[in-house]
Design a protein around this nucleic acid. Structure first.
Lengths: 208, 208
DNA sequence: CGGAAATGTTGCTGAGCGCGCAGCTTGCGG
DNA sequence: CCGCAAGCTGCGCGCTCAGCAACATTTCCG
């Protein structure tokens, strides 16, 4: 699944690589030894760059950790745009969202085990000091999703609040699904939870 | 509207006062001279406490600024619990939310002009470095709201994701309404926007 | 191919922040 | 009225974050 990094010169290539490497390193170290036992210095060393360079990519540890989620969430909007126009809106959104949260099957292909992503998510939701960064990425992703929705439905995002509303709802569904998913003791695939959540919301929130 | 601060000794009283004073001072200064031209030292001085004390109340500038929104959002859950059980759920939630966002009429009674709150909200949404703190408070408020909803509907928040879902939707509506409200050039009362947003969501998100 | 321009990396440095600690002050309850 | 829990404060340390100025390397274009 080549995002768009096919013909972007070796330089750009390398940049993306170190960015991702830094992000994963931050997550891994934070999971292993606890967030505040990890200094920027350590993360940089892990990847083999200077601490200063770390700050060129991310302005904080939290941002580095949240970046993985950021990228993933971004793709929902991209995926939505790629869906055939014939598909009903709800279906398209649901499918778009599910493509990014379907674990177990080949994932992102970057060779990163799902386990690592799971730990990362748990970390972001558990550590209060990360929640800020986490929510921030979610908000950014929602904005992009809103744009995609506006485009698809032909509504003007600046006038009608419909697109932002729908995007917000999707964001809420994802957040809730993630929380529930992490709690589930006999592990359950997140896809099911998310599908259920979206289904309910799109149905019109019937009173139980 | 005495939250619950009637008979809590002078000490506790004073604490709440300085907390709120610090928060408002942070907002006012940040609005006046720009967020990064304000040091913790300045805020503390404004209120007449030591910089060290500021950090006893808030762990960061952002937290101090977001605190005002935090308190306001918290009250939605409280208000919901106070609503008569006879009221339909949607109506109760909408009314509860509106009580906290009805500007123009007597407001919180603390003698703080609405203008200040407006500026504060604008600040939180505008400055990227504040978005984290802002979202964090929103999340906390949503959790409380979810609990209140669970209680009211008799659902178990730990088993059914319905309460969190509804709370998330309300949160999304508030966020969207706020953004739109700040953009509106001929100023429009936020209550109308929020009511509209909630109405649409609770209707079942009809396709436009 | 070769050299200039653009771009990324790095060390250095300084302003701030966040917090633990220890002593002092002050409201609280018996 | 006194002892005590709870706050406030100053001090100090380790860390974060960004600007600046070399330095290295890729890219572009003649």
């Amino acid at each position: 699944m080549g995002t768009e990094g096919e013909r972007m010169g070796l330089r750009e290539r390398k940049k993306q690589e170190t960015r991702i490497a830094l992000s994963w390193a931050a997550i891994r170290l934070a999971v292993e030894r606890g967030l505040d036992n990890v200094r920027v210095e350590d993360i940089a060393a892990e990847v083999g760059v200077s601490p200063r360079t770390f700050n060129n990519y991310f302005s904080s540890k939290g941002e580095a950790i949240a970046a993985r989620h950021q990228d993933r969430a971004r793709l929902i909007a991209v995926e939505l745009r790629a869906r055939p126009a014939s598909e009903p809106l709800w279906e398209a959104i649901t499918n778009a969202a599910l493509t990014q949260f379907a674990l177990g099957q080949e994932g992102g292909g970057e060779g990163v085990p799902d386990r690592q992503w799971i730990d990362g998510v748990r970390l972001m939701i558990t550590e209060p000091s990360l929640m800020g960064a986490f929510s921030k990425t979610a908000a950014a992703a929602e904005a992009e999703l809103a744009a995609a929705i506006a485009e698809r439905t032909g509504t003007d995002a600046a006038l009608d609040l419909y697109p932002q509303l729908v995007a917000g709802v999707v964001g809420a569904a994802i957040r809730v699904a993630m929380e529930r998913w992490l709690q589930a003791d006999p592990p359950v695939p997140i896809a099911g939870i998310l599908r259920d959540a979206l289904h309910r919301l799109f149905q019109g929130l019937p009173v139980p």
